[in-house]
Design a protein around this nucleic acid. Structure first.
Lengths: 203, 203, 203, 203
DNA sequence: AATGAATGAGCTTTCATTCAT
DNA sequence: TATGAATGAAAGCTCATTCAT
């Protein structure tokens, strides 16, 4: 009977997404149940359906929104970096690391709950991921073409770099030992060292 | 559905683990159900319990076995590499990459199903993981001490390197474009480039 | 979905009854849900409650209205038939068949959704049905008394005749092979043949 | 915990069908819920699924079994009646009425829950019904051909006769005023009077 | 070692209904 | 009069697990 006074549709919808983010991140999509989600939001399970179509649709919407945001933010960062290839590569890496610290839950879910998607939803999100990876692959290709980079195998290197730079979302905690800026700098160097043209290749 | 003909006890137990490996890898532990597992093995769900204690125990046993094998195999590889630091570091990387290609399902599960473990089981597996990470961290420390390596932050670099080298288990497919040996070589160079002492550090 | 444009209150109430008629006829009362009903009317489910008290009350009102109309129309038809018993019997049959073709949805619902009524509502509708059946039973009794009819068992014959004459509402479709008048004539003969006094009873 | 001692799969399956028969007859398929069904049988709702595939499948199986039995029993009765048309027609009617008294629940469900069937199931049962109706229609056609019967419209008469003879399943109660044999005789006469060749046709 | 039948807890989702706006 | 958001009860069904055979 106790209604949330001033309860508001948009606010509830936001609260659902926010709570789902935490719960899916912590327990996984399959292990999260809608009772717990509703309890976290402070509503009854049935009330969720005023705001979502289904559990599956909730996951898909969250992923799609996240991927769209990531793509747009990445493009904005690349745009802002200016024309120089190395500047754009650094911008991509820095943006990726920062984003993966600040939105580590969304990122983690988008990476590891793909298998929970229905086939049509799966195809759509995978396509968006491919677009994102293509941004980095294009930069590496460009760098190799200009001679600024030295990359033995572009696809493998793209995946390896992304895996390294994405790994941070599995262990980063705010208020940890290092500042975000330091982590960005560290990862940028690690990544660039792997692809920068080298005068001599030491054993 | 009966996949195992003339199955006896031990063979059934093996078949269960093998089927569970695939199913958990594909769908995740929470999403896998024992009906499907039993069907894959060709027995009735209730018969599983002649071979496992519980779904949770099955996961734990598989993880523990995997981690023990990984640790032992790693130590053997380090032993075989001889005394030189760089040889041992290369041996660790090569072994890690190879192992993560050949046993990518076990590895993936051990990395991403930790949250599905009961607290006591969780603690035990996390401890084994820490031991594994410690092998690499020790090598980096030693390399920094001897001056053969140049590492800005040892823990972060350890995590980043492991993330990069582990990433292969998310996309590697047998019969892909590149041979295992090529992938090992590529990853070794990428990883070492990130930590090798550099004469001059170019922009 | 909005089927009613420029709907006002009374028109909405009518639209609800009309949509409910079709939906209950097609799916049954228990299987009909108010979401679908509202959608058919072009309003939100909650808006239904400006026009109905409850799902149960909607059913009861519809049934009661139908039974009252049927009884009144039947009495009018009997009145118009004049004093002769056979004329009145023919009038009853003809009216019944016609009514069961023209309002076959109302009739079907009144016959087969009795069990969906709450006990007090049930009693009320069953009483009206009994009154209706009593009209025919009285005619048969009268015909037997005058010797114009020959009926082995009046209650059983009443039920059997009504079942036969009502059956048409389960298969009649407008624009079918036969005209309404033909169907009325056919059924009248079939029914009368069963009760008319016979000179000799052939094997 | 209290297990039914000597519990037995086949017995439970039978009990489920038997309880479902009563519940569906009384409340309708949509209004029956599996919790009540299980309670009636004395098992837990989840245990139902050791014996049925789904609620829909339960309904379909029951209907199909019923229709198959009805068709076979009808054919046996016609066979036993000998070659004479009127004997076979009487046999059909008598068997129909008897069957509709003795299995009035199955019959009622098969007649009035068709709409609850999924489209593929619906088609299958409707086809069986059509076969049954065809038995009577063929008899009427034959009788018209031999001149023993006088039927204004064979399809309409078939439906009307079946409606009349089927109606008994809506009101018959064992231990009622009349014996089964009497009811069979009454209905036989009512039905035959409608189709028998008449020397003169009175007003 | 394997199974069929049972279980109790729990799942996502639907439902009729309420109520402040 | 209409609605969006909420509700509590209940729905059909799934799940891991048990246990007598």
């Amino acid at each position: 009977m106790a209604r949330i006074s001033g309860s508001n549709g948009a606010r509830t919808a936001t609260a659902i997404r926010s709570a789902a983010l935490t719960l899916i991140y912590r327990q996984g999509f399959a292990a999260m149940n809608l009772r717990d989600l509703a309890a976290e939001v402070g509503i009854q399970p049935s009330s969720l359906y005023n705001h979502i179509t289904s559990k599956q649709a909730l996951l898909f919407d969250m992923m799609q929104e996240h991927m769209a945001t990531l793509l747009a933010a990445t493009d904005a960062a690349l745009e802002a970096a200016g024309p120089a290839l190395m500047d754009r590569l650094r911008a991509f890496i820095a943006h990726h690391v920062l984003y993966h610290m600040e939105r580590r839950q969304e990122v983690y879910i988008a990476n590891f709950e793909l298998r929970a998607l229905d086939p049509p939803n799966y195809r759509q999100i995978v396509e968006m991921r491919r677009n994102y990876e293509a941004r980095l692959m294009a930069l590496l290709e460009e760098g190799v073409a200009t001679g600024e980079l030295e990359v033995a195998d572009i696809p493998v290197t793209t995946f390896a770099m992304l895996a390294m730079l994405t790994g941070i979302c599995t262990w980063y905690r705010p208020n940890g030992r290092l500042e975000k800026a330091e982590l960005v700098a560290l990862h940028t160097e690690l990544a660039l060292n792997g692809v920068r043209r080298r005068a001599v290749s030491a054993r």
